[in-house]
């Protein structure tokens, strides 16, 4: 269980990274915290010819508050964000979700953007990005572009990132005065979610985002719903997510959790 051979590039600047990506294309992989990629390398699921280590690039290590958004660089570790003093005030949903990401020992190295790049549908950060309607900032050697969260995740482990693009960072909106709630069910503490739900009060009603069920984290907006209307909406949503059986849970169980936790969280944020 040793990784295949690859070149290792310790990038000193963003241009090192995007040039490396331009040259090697799909055979290059960006190495940030390594908490997903290195495991895949050890298992030889991934076989890049080039790894580009971006963690020495200072400008990617920033957490910046810009007007109504927080921009989190590709080099920001999960632990860095958790320790950011403004987190609970600016991004209360992220503050709730982030402690569910892995364990202390993986959050200390793992990055926010790395989790997004990996695009595991059960992971918490992709869910938070979708729930908040954030954007992913992509960059190649020629241009930059921003992709909305809902367009970024294309499927299990698939994203809108092109082979030559670096996820430079993400932008998460600061939604003032919003009530949020988050709950996750996993087999054990720190495992990938069987179902993770994030709820947020919106100006017109409520948003519920669900991870771990569909191939991508999925958000749904509703006007203020109550009683059986809420139950019906949640039931329809639960089925639309296309839950499946696996070794840890059945599709039915997942739908049950969407219905029950969804209802609890929506009530909580609408209180």
């Amino acid at each position: 269980m040793k990784p295949p051979a690859f070149d290792y590039l310790r990038a000193g600047s963003i241009s090192d990274v995007v040039e490396g990506l331009a040259q090697q294309g799909g055979d290059a992989r960006v190495l940030a915290g390594g908490q997903s990629l290195m495991a895949m390398l050890n298992m030889r699921l991934a076989k890049p010819k080039l790894l580009i280590d971006i963690m020495r690039i200072k400008e990617l290590r920033q957490i910046e508050r810009k007007n109504d958004a927080v921009v989190i660089g590709a080099g920001v570790r999960q632990a860095d964000l958790l320790a950011w003093p403004d987190l609970a005030e600016a991004l209360p949903l992220v503050a709730l979700a982030l402690p569910w990401v892995g364990h202390v020992q993986t959050r200390s190295r793992g990055t926010i953007c790395g989790s997004l790049a990996h695009a595991d549908p059960s992971a918490e950060m992709p869910l938070a990005l979708v729930a908040l309607g954030g954007e992913v900032l992509l960059r190649n050697a020629r241009r930059r572009r921003r992709v909305a969260a809902k367009d970024f995740f294309a499927g299990m482990m698939l994203t809108a990132r092109a082979d030559d693009e670096l996820i430079e960072g993400i932008s998460l909106p600061v939604i003032k005065g919003s009530r949020v709630a988050f709950r996750e069910v996993a087999r054990r503490h720190g495992d990938f979610a069987i179902v993770a739900c994030a709820a947020m009060k919106t100006p017109n009603g409520v948003r519920l985002a669900v991870g771990g069920v569909a191939d991508v984290p999925t958000a749904r907006d509703w006007p203020r719903l109550e009683g059986s209307a809420l139950d019906d909406a949640l039931n329809a949503f639960a089925y639309e997510l296309g839950a499946r059986d696996d070794v840890h849970a059945t599709a039915r169980y997942r739908r049950d959790l969407v219905r029950m936790i969804g209802r609890d969280l929506i009530r909580e944020v609408l209180q």
Binding site: M1, Y8, R10, L31, G34, Q35, M38, A39, N42, M43, L51, D53, M55, R77, A79, H103, V104, Q105, T106, S108, R109
Partner: peptide, 29 residues
Amino acid sequence: CEHGVCGACTVVVDGMLTRSCLTLAAQVD
């Protein structure tokens, strides 16, 4: 385990808890 779950290989790198099985030697130069 060499996939970052068991924690036996945990060390501290620059003040960060680190799974040494999920880290390349070259990364800690």
